[in-house]
Design a protein around this nucleic acid. Structure first.
Lengths: 129, 129
DNA sequence: CTTGACCTTCCCATAATGGGAATCCCCATC
DNA sequence: GATGGGGATTCCCATTATGGGAAGGTCAAG
């Protein structure tokens, strides 16, 4: 199947499919005319990538997960390790963001929010240190 | 003061100071030799930017906040609006990440994590839709 | 044989940050 | 005066993942 159909059936844009190819994640056959030719197994890979990306795994992790997925002798511990490291990265970023959000919400709560110019948010941003 | 001292005193790297200049956020004087020359007011701007970036405001927001900061006739409501919109962006990203983390943690909890190959994490990524 | 839908590659842009090269400037020391 | 070291300047490149768009090739139906 050509890239358009692969895109439709995998839920991955043709643009990204080509990109994943440059990253070595999906290597379809080529027809005589230069068109990419995707097999069902390529489709499965594309869906795998889509699911992994939906969980925000960076492509580097996706590459490792794909390798494990293809390896019938993998140890589930290896998969789990990658997943949990990613979970920690996600959680620490999420916590950092929520801390910023909370701090800003607090400042905003003390801001009149009317036509007066004085504003604790700007006061905070203006601090010297 | 030159860019090195401005960097030290503001806590913003020289590299980033130059970048902020290309973005129109800090426009220092230039000496005859071409060196940038920062005034105390520029330092205050740099610190302002650093604080705003520490709260993850995108530079576009920083630009608007700086404009309001300089405007003695600003309405605190304008500042608050920018801040709260950013808070919502932060919170929604944070929530999305935590949802992914939770979902992955759940899968990992059901993974043996030993030498056996079967793994619910891979099973999930492999799903067809 | 044209038209339309598809495919190809290549370049560009995003956001914020940093690395590094080539070149220039200033000041102090020999 | 020459030299050396520490800064400064600009310019290019890379990162991450995604998309827009151009220029040109291919194919099938009419």
């Amino acid at each position: 199947m050509n890239i358009g159909e692969a895109a439709r059936r995998s839920g991955v844009s043709a643009k990204m499919i080509r990109h994943y190819e440059t990253q070595g994640l999906v290597m379809p056959q080529r027809l005589a005319n230069g068109y990419r030719d995707y097999a069902e197994s390529d489709l499965a890979v594309l869906r795998f990538i889509r699911h992994a990306r939906a969980l925000a795994f960076p492509l580097e992790d996706v590459r490792r997960l794909l390798a494990l997925w293809r390896d019938r002798n993998r140890a589930s511990a290896d998969v789990r390790r990658i997943a949990l490291a990613h979970v920690e990265a996600l959680e620490s970023k999420a916590q950092a963001m929520q801390a910023m959000a909370a701090s800003l919400r607090h400042l905003a709560a003390h801001c009149h929010g009317d036509t007066r110019p004085d504003c604790p948010i700007l006061d905070e941003l203006e601090k010297s240190p």
